[in-house]
């Protein structure tokens, strides 16, 4: 079983405006709890700060916490919550951050770059002597297990010079695919997404653009709602959540996109911060 909580659903940059508050303004972060008590975290946008504070209510305040973070890529909006994740300052906690480096930079170099004192007022807790133990795990093999959860990663096409991953998580009868940043410039780009989403209970997919806006934004690295739905249909996903909302899209405009897909057989919703999904509980 997978218990999924959305802590950040907004793409690119936080949106502190009331008109965007229902779907939420924090950059991407999703918490996934498993039956075997693993804490898995998909992406580390600003939502990670608030997730981190909620983890402090658990063993993380006593330095007994353990979590795995799976990064799709290292654009700021997907890593900027790390310096503000308070359980990382608590000695004894253990975090593994999984992802891929890019070009000549290892994942560790990139994450250290974010903590550089020119930018970051927070102590560098990637240093083993400070705070929690952080292990940076460069993903080699694209399939691995975290406890009882099977993780499948696939390279997806985002922008030319950024290595970007999508993930599939399976635990018991529950399954989830997470593809937050992807653009399908050619048919072959759809293959990894369809593979990740095959038969999943829930597909969380980039819908940064609207279908109407997309032609003018082609090449910017993102998809639109009809892409998300196309992947879900081809893959036989049971539900699709439109994710990585454009910072200019307010709640009403996301509602309008969602309701335009209401008549089909596939459940389509906009990802809302604070929402919870339980996947595979009925087995």
């Amino acid at each position: 079983m997978l218990r999924v909580n959305l802590w950040g659903t907004r793409g690119t940059v936080s949106t502190p405006v009331a008109s965007h508050a229902r779907y939420g303004g924090n950059t991407p972060c999703i918490e996934v709890r498993t039956d075997d008590d693993e804490v898995l975290i998909l992406d580390a946008g600003i939502g990670l700060h608030w997730l981190g504070d909620s983890l402090l209510a658990d063993g993380f305040s006593r330095g007994e916490g353990r979590a795995h973070i799976l990064l799709s890529h290292t654009h700021w909006a997907h890593i900027q919550g790390i310096p503000f994740c308070n359980p990382m300052l608590v000695a004894g906690n253990r975090f593994a951050i999984h992802g891929r480096g890019n070009g000549g930079d290892s994942l560790e170099q990139l994450l250290l770059g974010q903590m550089d004192s020119a930018f970051c007022p927070v102590p560098n807790f990637l240093d083993d002597r400070i705070g929690a133990a952080l292990a940076i795990a460069e993903i080699g093999a694209l399939e691995f297990d975290i406890g009882a959860t099977h993780v499948v990663a696939r390279l997806v096409h985002h922008v030319d010079d950024a290595v970007c991953l999508g993930y599939r998580l399976e635990n018991g009868n529950g399954s989830l695919a997470y593809i937050p940043d992807v653009e399908y410039l050619e048919e072959a780009h759809r293959i990894p997404s369809v593979e990740l989403a095959a038969g999943v209970d829930l597909l969380i997919h980039d819908a940064h653009h609207t279908t109407a806006d997309y032609p003018g934004r082609r090449g910017c690295g993102h998809s639109c709602d009809t892409d998300a739905i196309d992947i879900a249909r081809r893959a036989g996903a049971r539900k699709v959540l439109l994710f990585h909302h454009h910072p200019d899209h307010d709640d009403d405009s996301i509602d309008a996109v969602v309701s335009s897909h209401e008549n089909g057989d596939l459940p389509v919703a906009g990802a809302r911060e604070g929402e919870e999904f339980v996947l595979g509980a009925d087995a």
Partner: peptide, 18 residues
């Protein structure tokens, strides 16, 4: 007007989250 990182909770938007 906000320090450290942007906040987006409605309860804080009267003063602002940027």
């Amino acid at each position: 007007v906000r320090g450290s990182f942007p906040v987006t909770a409605l309860s804080q938007l009267g003063y602002g989250g940027n």
